[in-house]
Design a protein around this nucleic acid. Structure first.
Lengths: 227, 227
DNA sequence: CGCCCATTTGAAAATAATCAATGGAAGTGG
DNA sequence: CCACTTCCATTGATTATTTTCAAATGGGCG
């Protein structure tokens, strides 16, 4: 039963355009141990410090991973969209994962997967590749956080989201402005102001609150400042 | 020949106090494929984009990994001290690695190690653990970059360096103030000013430019703001 | 229709960056 | 051995970006 659902679940209706390690063969092996689970908006998938007994693949919706400081300041390490994996990495979870919107996930029990890795070395390599990719994007994000201006951060974010959710020309933003701020190391107000400015400059257009059309891709790339 | 040197090299004179995955058995298997190499201060170990044909272990000295923006702004993703591994992660290197001071490393050819992983599954797990740990510290650093004040950044940095280089009571700083700034997302001036302030407050004392004694550990932990 | 919540906008304040100059230690060469 | 050079760190004054505090707008939903 769960096997059937999981098999369906690993072929998301919205294919991720984010570059990923090729996963055809290796991932098929994961299907039989996956279980579909659902989380309502703003609920917790797992907590920082929990033993990492499972990891998850996003089927629909979105998940954020976050860390808190003592006084409540929050940092969002990443957003996970359909096709992305959350909670890889062993031992204990080193961040809290929460559903940004109503979300469906496939849960994989680590114990079962560890056994599979023993049988299929390629699956182990796939894990290495996934972690390696995560490390790479973490470092790109650190460069952004440490050295980019507010405008450069927003431009980079919009370009990345457009790449992941809208074929590069349109970005869906399932998260709030506060979430975006916590992801980019800015306040809600600064996020909002920067959006407004880009809109006035004719670089982007808002379609409602949660969708952005990129009108001038070239300028946005320049503003992102990566050279 | 190279095997002997590598065997010596993997038992650094200064043992790292940084928490690491237990490495006794797995790492012994690496020794025979390691070659000792040296780099002068401020020279390049490998460049961002280079095919990742090797990774390295620091024997003595220090290495920094960095990324650049188009206009020259720099971000240092990490410092690597004796006992640390640089350049794990497959495909291509996603950052440039440079020697902070005169440095001795052990180079491991990835091809040889891939073969070893095939024979010894535990080595594969060790790789996963190392990458997972790297991801965890990257996320901690992102929280610091995105949400901490200059003083909190410096306090956190000094505590971490003291843990790694001086049993928690004393921190050796082989890098320049500019390096520290590029690591914490600050300017040289702000780093210097914050050091001065902590010194005036009696929290730390400088022994020369490259060594810091922690006088009031408790206060420094509070200033680091992790709760 | 009206409430609620997120977003937007505005004004003031603060943190850190920038610009500029001085100080000091290490290393070089006479 | 000393003077000179160079590089790095420190200090000061000013500027600017972003945050903070506060209020208003607006969209979605019951």
């Amino acid at each position: 039963m769960s096997a059937d659902l999981a098999t369906i679940a690993t072929r998301p209706l919205v294919p991720p355009s984010q570059p990923q390690p090729k996963m055809s063969g290796e991932l098929a092996a994961l299907d039989p141990v996956g279980v579909v689970v659902s989380f309502a908006r703003e609920t917790t998938v797992f907590l920082e410090g929990d033993p990492a007994e499972s990891f998850y693949k996003v089927v629909s919706g979105a998940v954020r991973s976050c860390k808190l400081l003592a006084d409540g300041r929050r940092y969002i390490a990443d957003f996970f969209l359909p096709g992305d994996f959350v909670g890889l990495g062993g031992g204990r979870h080193h961040f809290t994962a929460e559903a940004v919107s109503d979300t469906t996930l496939v849960r994989y029990a680590r114990r079962s997967v560890d056994r599979l890795i023993g049988e299929q070395p390629r699956l182990g390599k796939w894990f290495l590749a996934m972690l390696s990719e995560g490390l790479c994007s973490a470092q790109t994000q650190m460069l952004l956080l440490g050295r980019k201006t507010a405008q450069e951060k927003i431009a980079s974010f919009l370009l990345a989201m457009a790449e992941r959710t809208g074929a590069g020309v349109q970005a869906k933003l399932p998260m709030t402005r506060t979430d975006i701020g916590d992801y980019l190391g800015l306040t809600t107000e600064t996020v909002s102001r920067t959006f407004t400015q880009l809109r006035h400059d004719g670089v982007i257009a808002l379609k409602g609150l949660n969708e952005v059309r990129i009108l001038d891709h070239e300028t946005l790339v320049e503003l992102a400042g990566e050279g």
